[in-house]
Every structure is written in structure tokens, then in C-alpha cells.
Amino acid sequence: MEGVLSGAIGVLAASGIWLVLRPRTFQVIVGLCLLSYAVNLFIFATGRLVLGAPPIMPRGGFIDPTAYADPLPQALVLTAIVISFATTALFLVVLIASRGLTGTDHVDAQEREP
């Protein structure tokens, strides 16, 4: 399971980085999305991978913490998803404004001289 997850994070991050470095704004935004997926999975993985363990402990008594998943990374990843979603939406608006103002989707708002 660890291998699959780390492989997925790696592939997402690599494609994301490649796309962020491309000259078209649409490629950049898709790259940022892929990067944020990779980061979200990464945060989730910092809580260690466990199968079928609940994150919330019952009240009272002695509890064996190893039988439970770490709830904190799950809470963090929720916050991170919301924030990166909102900022990406904002970036999309700027992207469209730039396209409308300049008539090109190049990140420098002008086509490179041939």
C-alpha cells in the first residue's frame, strides 16, 4: 500500500511540476491542481497508513492509541483542500481576465517573438 501511495504522489507531483513550468496559463493551473493533490495525499500519509481504524476515540477508560488512526492529518488535509480549492478558483478568474485583456494565454501576456 505504501508503494502505491508514494508512487501516486510522485507521479502527481512530477506531472504537476512539469505543467507549472509550461508557458500556457491553462497548463499552469492544471499543474497547480495536480501539485495540490499530491500535497494533500502527502499530508494524509504523514498520519501513517492504517486500515479500518477509526480516528475518534471513545470517551473514558484506557484506550490503546495504536488501534486508532491519527486524526490530526485528516483535519489538516480538509483545511488544505478547502484553501487550495479557493485560491485555485481565484487564480482561474485572474487567468480569464488576463486572457480577455491581452488576447493571449501566454503566462507573460505576450507571445514570444518567432
Binding site: V20, T25, V28, L32, L35, S36, V39, F42, I43, T46, L72, P73, L76, A80, I83, S84, T87, T88, L90, F91, V94, L95, A97, S98, L101, T102, V107, D108, A109
Partner: peptide, 27 residues
């Protein structure tokens, strides 16, 4: 708009780095 585009792209990437760093420190 052009300056803003670069600024937002840079800072979004920076925020992602921040998240990776925070989660590694936590781990």
C-alpha cells in the same frame, strides 16, 4: 493582471511547499 498572475502562481506554489514542510515537521 500580468503582475498578479505571476504573483499568484508563485505564492500558490510557495503555499504548497509550506504544507509539505508543515506535514513533515508533524510527522
Amino acid at each position: 493582471v500580468r503582475g498578479g498572475l505571476h504573483y499568484i502562481a508563485i505564492n500558490l506554489t510557495g503555499s504548497l511547499l509550506f504544507l509539505v514542510g508543515v506535514s513533515m515537521v508533524y510527522a
